[in-house]
Amino acid sequence: MSDSAPPLRGACQAGGVGRDESDVFGCAWSRSRTDRADAQGTPPSATEILRAAGAPLPLPPSRGRSAAASSPVSRVRFYSLTSDKEGSALRAVQFTRGETVLGAEVRDGVGPPLVLLPGVMADAATWRPVVEHIALPNPVLVLDRRGRGASGPLGPGYSVRTEVDDLRHVLGNLGDLGLPGVGTHLFGWSYGGLIALEAAVGRADLRSLTLYEPVARPFAPEALEPLREAVGRNDLDRAVELVNTVVSGFSDGYVAELRRSPVWNVLRSLAEPLADELGAIDGHRPAFDAYAELDVPVTLLLGADNEGRPPYGTAFARFERALPRARVVRIEGEGHLAHASAPRLLAEHITDAVTAH
């Protein structure tokens, strides 16, 4: 992109964040299209930006409920949490696997639970606008993967297998939250889609599996070493620059304007685990041969704008070939970031995938 592209605008308003299909990681600010009717929209306040972008959620033990329903296996802890919109109360919980805390946000309900797993540069808070619009009575749990939110660090030896084992631990301990442990609906986006799919292999207790543009190697390999160097010297500003330029293709001018926005510090925190996450994707060989044997109905969601285009459309095609029985749904007018650009629309597709099974 050139420096003459339209200026940034605040986009983290009630419906989520601004849309640009080339923005890989769903930053809370994005370049407006020249044909957007709302291109001159009023920027939100700093508080709105931070909330919509997924600012880290403090969970002090003095707030909310105690761990009355904890178990010696997962040691689930409960806290009170209320969303910005009336009638959408959430609760924050923490699982413990070994020495690692795994945080999550839960919207209570009845019936089999729906578990959502975000990808990189996102956390549970980033997905609140989607959860708000999921028109299901079912409980909804959004997991904060390692390195974000209330969860612990990635830890030594981090890999896709680490994430898969974390997810399997959570799925195996949903009963500690008073949720049914069988018949779970599982959803994963991007890196979360790869993790969810790998975790589903060999399981017979899932009711449905929905994957929104899962990714696999190779994934932005040219950005990996520069990101490792930047994060290694704790230069998170440089890491955010690399995400937006080398990976996402934005201009230096765009990044300079982004740096002046209140959301920059949020992006810095989300970028901290990015190099290791991309390295994990690059070092993992998906079990493509095993996917066709999955004993669970699968829905594949593709942003129609990405069809046939790298990196997401080309990666999607590989998963589509490996899952010949999957139902394939194209989200018209969207790319990789429907959770940010069209949370209501994405929620409708998730709702449809769940109600179909």
Rank of each mutant, 00 (worst) to 15 (best):
S4E: 14
Q13D: 15
V24T: 13
R36M: 15
A37V: 15
D38I: 14
S45Q: 15
A46P: 08
T47Q: 12
E48L: 06
L50T: 04
S62D: 14
G64P: 12
A68G: 11
S70C: 15
P72E: 03
S80C: 08
L90V: 02
R91T: 13
R91Q: 13
R91W: 07
A92E: 10
Q94K: 08
Q94L: 09
V101T: 14
A104T: 04
E105T: 03
D108F: 01
G109E: 02
W127S: 00
R128A: 09
H133E: 08
A135C: 07
V142Y: 01
D166V: 12
H169T: 07
N173P: 06
L174H: 03
G175C: 07
G181N: 00
T184L: 01
I195D: 00
A199P: 03
A200S: 11
R207Y: 02
S208H: 05
R217M: 11
A223R: 03
E225Q: 13
L227Q: 04
D237S: 14
A239Q: 11
V243Q: 08
V243M: 09
N244Y: 06
G249R: 07
S251V: 04
L258S: 00
V266T: 10
E272V: 11
D276L: 05
G279L: 01
H284A: 00
E293Y: 12
L294W: 02
D295R: 14
V298Y: 03
L302A: 11
A304P: 10
D305Y: 04
R309D: 11
Y312S: 01
Y312K: 02
T314D: 11
T314R: 10
F316R: 05
R318A: 12
P324C: 06
V328F: 06
E332Q: 12
G335E: 04
H336L: 05
A340F: 03
A342W: 02
H357G: 11
H357Y: 14
